[in-house]
């Protein structure tokens, strides 16, 4: 049976953005790795951004999944940055002594993009970035119409 919840892989210029979310079982992890490496193989990919905002828990298994994905990408010459880790997750990983291997981390998606040289256009730097809370409130507004 085909698993319906494949993790999306979004191409943003020459970067791959993977919003890791949902339950990442062995099958999903394998699918994700194959899909990402396939996308890297097609060429013109400078970097891989794994956004873990959508995960509420990262255990040693998930750490290993992310690390292996980054290692495989590295073998193909692509650098990986993990971003969007919550304070609770970071503390848990640190207490457990888990290692994310050679994976680099950034606080936010914006910072991850900046590490790859993507910047907000001139003159728009003053703009407040759109936050999840803004989206949430716009959902609430949309609904009361």
């Amino acid at each position: 049976m085909k698993e319906p919840n494949r993790v999306p892989i979004i191409r943003v210029w020459n970067l791959l953005l993977v919003p890791v979310q949902g339950e990442l079982g062995d099958t999903q992890a394998e699918d994700l790795k194959r899909d990402v490496l396939g996308a890297i193989h097609t060429g013109n990919v400078e970097g891989l951004v794994l956004d873990v905002t959508g995960l509420w828990l990262i255990d040693s298994h998930l750490c290993a999944v992310l690390t292996r994905l980054a290692q495989a990408a590295s073998l193909m010459g692509t650098r990986t940055i993990v971003c969007g880790m919550s304070a609770e997750i970071a503390l848990t990983i640190q207490t457990m002594g888990l290692e994310l291997g050679a994976v680099q981390t950034a606080l936010s998606l914006e910072q991850a993009f900046e590490r790859f040289g993507v910047r907000a256009p001139e003159g728009e730097e003053e703009d407040r970035p759109v936050l999840e809370s803004d989206l949430a409130s716009s959902v609430a507004k949309g609904e009361s119409q």
Partner: peptide
């Protein structure tokens, strides 16, 4: 497979 780190980490929690 990661059993080692997982079980040691669990103990620390």
């Amino acid at each position: 497979t990661g059993l080692g780190a997982g079980i040691r980490g669990t103990k620390r929690l």
